[in-house]
């Protein structure tokens, strides 16, 4: 009965494999069109579950994530824009609920600082290479030439 054991093992392995591949989100939704489905997938992917640590709403089983998915689905079918839906969630769950920060007075430095650092780094690099090349063009004085000549002659 060895083959029987082996088949059972293979089967249970397959069940485990495909079982774990299934999405955490379990509700079955029907969309009016493909565009809505894509926007739904995109929105729930970028919403962050307020109850769990670093899991997005699309992948979370927390009751609050189910609610957020439900609300997103409803608002999409009521004709709200993506930005409306994001604003709606931020009004209730603060900026914590979105992974991609919105541009504001507080968050502007997220875009500004890398640009400033990159620019100042470039300027610094250019300056340092320039000053180094100017140093190497240092000419020898006449005294130095004489000394060099005598030294070379002494050796031969």
């Amino acid at each position: 009965m060895k083959w029987c054991n082996r088949t059972a093992a293979t089967l249970s392995f397959l069940v485990l494999l495909f079982g774990s591949l299934a999405f955490a989100a379990s509700e079955v939704l029907t969309f009016d069109n493909d565009e809505l489905r894509e926007r739904y997938a995109e929105l729930t992917f970028q919403f962050r579950c307020p109850k769990c640590q670093n899991q997005n709403v699309a992948d979370s089983n927390a009751p609050i994530s189910v609610d957020i998915r439900q609300k997103t689905y409803e608002m999409l079918h009521q004709g709200y824009s993506d930005q409306d839906i994001v604003d709606f969630m931020v009004d209730r769950y603060t900026e914590f609920v979105i992974y991609k920060p919105q541009m504001s007075v507080v968050t502007i430095w997220l875009w500004v600082v890398p640009a400033v650092v990159l620019l100042s780094g470039l300027i610094l690099l250019i300056r340092m290479t320039r000053s180094r090349s100017s140093e190497t063009v240092d000419e020898l004085t006449d005294d130095d030439r004489d000394r060099l000549k005598t030294l070379l002659e002494d050796k031969s």
């Binding site: 927390a62 609050i64 609300k71 209730r92």
Partner: peptide, 12 residues
């Protein structure tokens, strides 16, 4: 249905 809870930003 947790409607008021949602408006309050309740997570649990």
């Amino acid at each position: 249905n947790g409607d008021l809870g949602f408006d309050l930003g309740v997570t649990g």
